[in-house]
């Protein structure tokens, strides 16, 4: 649908600069810019803005999708505040995000620096990205088998090491760390690649100066790489934190929120309410809550990390 509408807009956009107006006043590109923006803006409105507004509207209704929505005011939000499963899912989601982001970012940073400083081999850099090429569902399935309590290879190794079997995905203590680890495995390469791109922007001369001053590799990492990488790291963190809050498919495939509610993350709870229990109104209210949380988290992150300034100048 989007490509259909994009074609005529693009053709008028390319046709425009040949017109007389554009030749006479070359500095005013507003109209041209608007035309380039138009297709994306249309997509933004149709696929993002309108659904968001409609979702906010639906959060004030009782709606089962098959009969018309009924306005109930703030009922859904009152229910949300008193819903222990909602608060539990918030807690579980937060626990997941903290574990996932902390390990993922730290590991990715190490991998990226190693790619930058130690090896120039393309195939080695490529290997780092391979887990990301596996779909989330497949990754979850593979780990279900590896970590199976009875037959999994992972538990087979643990038992032979004398550590005893661990019910990774079916004990309430292990389930969130396990899911967080599965997603670290899958996303760390991609995150490392983003950071690696950021590292490329740091000029080699900075390191040369460091080396002349006799700084060790370790010290250069702490006092040169990290500060100069800050804007990129901030961007990567915002993207990955937002993604992390929306963890869904690993949970849907591996645990369906269990055992009991210990992996019932917010996105899965919302999905279950909407598509399992036909409570689209209440599910919309929870989605709005998630939207607000993400908005606040992103703004705070942006401010704290001064993502819009660089120390490179």
């Amino acid at each position: 649908m989007a490509s259909d509408t994009a074609v005529p807009v693009a053709s008028t956009a390319t046709g425009h600069p040949t017109g007389k107006g554009a030749r006479r006043r070359p500095h005013d590109d507003t109209r041209l810019a608007l035309m380039f923006i138009a297709p994306a803006f249309l997509g933004y409105c149709v696929f993002l803005l309108w659904p968001t507004l409609r979702g906010i509207y639906l959060s004030f209704t009782r709606f089962n999708l098959l009969t018309p929505p009924k306005w109930v005011g703030l009922d859904n939000y009152v229910r949300m505040v008193h819903d222990p499963i909602f608060w539990n899912s918030m807690k579980v989601t937060l626990e997941y995000v903290v574990l996932n982001i902390a390990f993922q970012t730290a590991l990715a940073l190490v991998i990226a620096v190693m790619m930058q400083r130690l090896t120039k081999k393309t195939w080695l850099r490529g290997i780092v990205l391979t887990p990301y090429l596996v779909s989330n569902v497949v990754a979850a399935m593979v780990f279900i088998w590896i970590l199976d309590y009875q037959l999994g290879f992972g538990n087979y190794i643990l038992q032979h090491l004398g550590l005893g079997r661990i019910a990774f995905l079916s004990s309430d203590h292990w389930v969130i760390p396990t899911i967080a680890f599965i997603n670290v495995w899958r996303h760390v390469g991609y995150t490392a690649l983003l950071i690696f791109a950021g590292l490329q922007t740091i000029p080699e001369s900075v390191y040369e100066a460091g080396r002349l001053d006799g700084a060790s590799e370790n010290r250069m990492f702490r006092h040169l790489t990290v500060p100069l990488l800050r804007p990129i790291l901030a961007l990567v963190l915002i993207i990955t934190v937002v993604g992390s809050f929306q963890v869904f498919d690993t949970v849907a495939v591996a645990t369906q929120g269990g055992p009991v509610n210990s992996s019932r993350v917010l996105q899965f709870y919302i999905y279950d309410l909407a598509f399992g229990r036909f409570q689209f109104g209440y599910a919309s209210a929870l989605s709005v809550a998630l939207l607000l949380v993400l908005l606040i988290v992103s703004i705070v992150q942006y401010r704290l990390s001064r993502a819009d300034e660089s120390d490179l100048d």
Binding site: Y149, Q150, L169, S170
Partner: peptide
């Protein structure tokens, strides 16, 4: 136990008898 049968993706009586569990 809950863990032995595989938590939320549990096996059933048929598999449990088949494997001797």
């Amino acid at each position: 136990t809950y863990q032995e049968i595989g938590g939320s993706s549990a096996i059933g009586t048929d598999k449990e008898i088949q494997t001797g569990m």
